[in-house]
């Protein structure tokens, strides 16, 4: 009977000690991981910057083993660095990928997993320099059941064969989501997809048109106005989107083709376009000339409802 409290006390103390040791070990692991990530960043970037104070043989000596966890951490770190920079030399990356067998490792993981895990592996692959073997293996994921996997496979192919962008995107069957278009634009900003807006706007594929629209808006390409006016005349969503792009660039909308297109919109679409043009700082006079005396007072009520003062910087 005397021993029972003693046993309970020993168990409790033992559990607390285990918990404390576990916490210490976990913190040490995290610190090691962070030091490793920092070291990867330092060495890879140092090579990119051609800093002479790090010796050649040290530049590729990274504090990572070939274990699964370390290779995944290395791939994630490289992916984050590459997606946040551009203009860097890819030779160092190719050496690291070869030295750690990252391509084979990620392909194997993608093969053995499903769904979002597979998509994650493919996205990491998209940021790394790949060989022909990877391209052949990734092609089959374009038929996967999961949309995220199909799009991740597209990203891998775009990264490896940027000159085939028009064909690869045209083969993507579904209408792209806004987030997917943003991902492709991110590749463009990094210089990974050397393409101009003209072939994107001239294509008959809706996804290519949408990428072209996003490109024109993001870079403020006013020279695209003639192509946009031609697209406004098209029926369907492409024509409506072209109107929004013209408004985003704050181009003059008092064109015959634009006025005719606005008249063909449904009342809800007209109101939505009116709201957007108000946010793009079109004046009341411009809106009245496009939407008439019946609908345009809505824009004045909308502006009056704003709780802070607005300054219209551009006049007609």
């Amino acid at each position: 009977m005397i021993q029972i409290p003693y046993i309970c006390y020993s168990i409790v103390v033992g559990l607390l000690l285990l918990r404390l040791l576990g916490k210490i070990a976990y913190t040490a692991c995290l610190r090691r991981q962070q030091r490793g990530l920092d070291e990867v960043a330092r060495r890879v970037v140092a090579r990119w910057m051609a800093r002479p104070w790090i010796a050649e043989e040290e530049r590729l000596l990274l504090p990572f083993s070939r274990s699964s966890v370390d290779r995944m951490r290395l791939a994630e770190t490289l992916s984050r660095l590459i997606s946040a920079t551009y203009g860097a030399d890819r030779t160092t990356l190719q050496m690291i990928v070869r030295a750690y067998g990252l391509e084979r490792y990620l392909l194997r993981r993608a093969r053995r997993s499903r769904g979002l895990r597979r998509a994650c592996c493919l996205r990491l692959l998209a940021d790394l320099p790949l060989g022909e073997r990877a391209m052949a293996e990734v092609a089959r994921y374009r038929m996967d059941r999961q949309r995220e996997v199909r799009f991740a496979a597209l990203l891998v192919q775009l990264a490896a064969q940027p000159e085939q962008m028009l064909r690869l995107v045209a083969e993507y069957d579904e209408p792209m989501r806004g987030a997917e278009i943003a991902e492709i634009l991110h590749l463009l900003r990094r210089g990974a997809l050397p393409i101009a807006y003209q072939p994107l706007l001239a294509a008959s594929n809706e996804n290519l048109n949408r990428i072209g629209f996003a490109l024109v808006v993001q870079f403020g390409i006013e020279q695209a106005e003639p192509e946009l006016l031609r697209l406004v005349a098209r029926t369907g969503r492409v024509g409506v989107r072209a109107l929004y792009v013209l408004a985003a660039l704050h181009r003059p909308m008092q064109r015959r083709v634009v006025i005719l297109r606005i008249r063909r919109l449904s009342p809800a679409e007209r109101r939505s376009l009116l709201r957007y043009m108000v946010s793009q700082e079109y004046t009341a006079e411009q809106l009245r000339s496009l939407f008439g005396a019946v609908e345009s007072p809505y824009s004045e009520r909308l502006v009056a409802s704003y709780k802070r003062s607005l300054v219209c910087l551009k006049s007609s």
């Binding site: 962070q34 990530l37 960043a41 970037v45 910057m49 770190t77 984050r80 920079t85």
Partner: peptide
């Protein structure tokens, strides 16, 4: 985030 600090530190060292 530590990674960006290390990146910029290395660029400017």
């Amino acid at each position: 985030e530590g990674l960006w600090a290390t990146l910029i530190e290395t660029i400017l060292s």
